[in-house]
């Protein structure tokens, strides 16, 4: 329940009340306030004090495409790895479901088809041009943030599939497509795949190739950065 005294206080100055309400129409401000409120309550429940976020959230700077891809897939597969869902596409709060909807709308076919058929990928790619002219409104936010990777959503989904169920896929075309793309990004596919499921432990503050990590270390005047061992193992020399 809201503290009655603070409610009264707010109601005594209606201009201030409406100013605060108006501020929340900015999505960034709303998210910041909301997360802060959630974190405060979580701190209270877990009886934590001191620093506000208490290590519950932290930033990782992603230095190249391979690390952006690994981090994105790590987030998308999080509910699966935590055993909250049986299949990644069942996750309620990841962008994956929206991406799949886009593919679905673009190709006019169901998800099962997409995951298993090569012909469909070609068809869908042909249709991608058409789709660009009439973007489905339903999933516009994903459309906006989709261009952060230098390849299309079909390849992205293949890589995601490759990470999430490699064993079952065996030597399929999905494996071939994903591996080819990953090699192009400068990583050893099978080794990279493991970091996509353990991303937070694999790297700390910075993630990327050994060269980029060394460069960052020099810039930050650090001798070495956590994650260098992983990077040397994952990236092609």
């Amino acid at each position: 329940e809201a503290d009655a005294e603070r409610v009264r206080e707010l109601l005594s100055d209606l201009d201030e009340l409406h100013r605060r309400k108006y501020l929340l129409t900015d999505i960034s401000i709303f998210m910041a306030r909301w997360e802060e409120a959630v974190a405060r309550r979580a701190n209270k429940v877990e009886d934590k004090k001191g620093r506000f976020w208490e290590g519950r959230f932290h930033c990782q700077k992603l230095l190249d495409t391979a690390s952006i891809l690994a981090a994105t897939i790590y987030v998308e597969l999080n509910p699966l790895l935590a055993n909250i869902v049986e299949l990644p596409e069942y996750s309620q709060y990841t962008s994956l479901v929206k991406r799949l909807k886009l593919v679905h709308l673009a190709s006019g076919h169901s998800m099962e088809h997409l995951m298993d058929s090569d012909k469909l990928e070609e068809q869908a790619m042909l249709k991608e041009d058409v789709e660009n002219q009439s973007s489905p409104k339903l999933v516009t936010n994903v459309l906006v943030c989709e261009q952060f990777l230098p390849f299309g959503r079909h390849k992205y989904l293949k890589v995601l599939d490759y990470v999430s169920r490699r064993k079952r896929l065996g030597k399929s075309s999905t494996t071939a497509t994903a591996e080819k793309l990953l090699v192009r990004l400068g990583v050893e596919p099978d080794r990279w795949r493991k970091t996509a499921s353990t991303f937070e432990e694999s790297y700390r503050l910075f993630a990327g190739s050994p060269e980029l990590l060394s460069q960052t270390a020099v810039e930050k005047k650090k001798r070495c950065l956590h994650g260098m061992r992983t990077a040397r193992y994952v990236y092609h020399p």
Binding site: A2, D3, R6, V7, L11, L14, L17, R20, R33, A37
Partner: peptide, 14 residues
């Protein structure tokens, strides 16, 4: 939503 409800929600959020 009336002002009282808005105030309550703001207090809960902040």
């Amino acid at each position: 939503m009336d002002d009282v409800e808005i105030a309550k929600r703001l207090v809960r959020l902040y």
